[in-house]
Simulated assay, not measured.
Amino acid sequence: MNASKKYFAEALGTFALVLFGCGAATIASVTQSGPVGIGVLGIALAFGFAVLVMVYTIGPISGCHINPAISIAMLAAGKLSAKDTLGYVIAQCIGAVAAAGLLYLLATGSAGFVMPKWGLGSNGWGAGYGGEYNMTSALIAEFVFTFLFLMVIFGTTSERHNAPMMAGLAIGISLALIHMVVIPITGTSVNPARSLGPALFSGGMALQQLWLFIVAPIAGGLCAALVRKIFIDD
């Protein structure tokens, strides 16, 4: 597949993930009369379904990583070249920022809109965010759940997997499950690009805390690649 087509597919897929997932957290959770009540479950399903549909939409083109932590883990596992890894990560970040920009445009169309401290579905931790978990909890959650997410991805996309067409379903469900647990802690990143887009437009605390949502998911993904190589792959 032509490299530019793969990079475009990654940008498009990440755009869709951020727009659907963070859109559910930002727009679908409030109306002029108050909360809609989709809650954690609704937001979790939005992220999971977004990944699910994009796996079958762009998977045959780029593999549907739509997440720098996945692409870097695939590089470490020898499944992606350094050139494509760089192209994928840049495309993913562009797609995420574009989606956050569109989400910001839509959100500001609401009368009386004021950007929250962690706006547009930004990730964070500490006083005033979600369940007010501390940095240690946030770091551990992002590392461990990204590790588990990558283990699902490595397993379902393995050449030994006897039902490759079911991979998208398993990956989408696993991401939804991750969100159900981690949303109260950090809003759930497990994806540096997903965190980057909203943080750039939200600014403030979201931007200050962005480092954790870059470092922890990438570390979790690399750990999964190492565990897979040592204990599972031949």
Score class of each variant (00 low, 15 high):
G39V: 03
V182D: 03
T157V: 08
A69M: 14
Q92D: 03
R160I: 05
S29W: 00
G128I: 08
G95E: 05
P116S: 06
G63L: 07
M151N: 13
N162Y: 10
V89P: 01
H65M: 11
F49T: 14
A224S: 08
A98C: 14
L45C: 13
G119C: 03
A25Y: 01
L41T: 11
F147M: 08
A193Y: 09
A50H: 03
T136N: 04
D233S: 15
L175E: 03
E159A: 15
F15K: 01
A141T: 11
Y56I: 14
I183P: 02
I230F: 15
R228F: 15
V97Y: 00
A69I: 13
L120M: 02
Y88C: 05
I230A: 12
V190G: 01
L120T: 03
S189D: 02
L177I: 08
I72W: 00
F143I: 13
Q32Y: 12
L86R: 06
G121H: 01
G78R: 12
K229S: 13
I173L: 13
A76I: 09
A28H: 09
P184T: 13
G124K: 03
G63T: 15
I214A: 09
Q208C: 11
L222R: 10
G59M: 05
V182M: 08
G155T: 08
K5S: 11
L148I: 15
S195R: 04
A225W: 02
T156R: 03
G37V: 02
Q208F: 15
R194E: 10
G34S: 09
T188I: 08
T26N: 05
F154C: 07
K5N: 14
A50F: 06
L86G: 13
A77I: 07
A77S: 15
Q92V: 04
L222V: 06
G128C: 10
M151H: 08
G168V: 06
D233Y: 12
T188V: 10
S122W: 05
P116E: 09
G187P: 07
S202W: 00
F154T: 14
N2A: 11
V18C: 05
P35Q: 14
L41D: 02
I61P: 01
Q208D: 14
S29Q: 04
A98W: 01
R194D: 08
K79I: 13
Y104G: 00
A127S: 12
V227Y: 05
F20Y: 07
I153T: 07
H65E: 07
C93I: 10
M135H: 09
K117L: 13
L102I: 08
A170F: 07
T156A: 13
L139K: 08
W211I: 09
I183Q: 03
T136P: 00
G101I: 06
G172P: 00
I66L: 10
G203Y: 06
K5C: 10
T186F: 01
G13T: 09
I173H: 02
L19W: 04
I153S: 12
T136C: 05
A46P: 04
P192E: 09
P217N: 03
Q92C: 08
A216W: 00
V18A: 04
I66Q: 04
M54N: 14
I94E: 02
G187N: 04
F8Q: 03
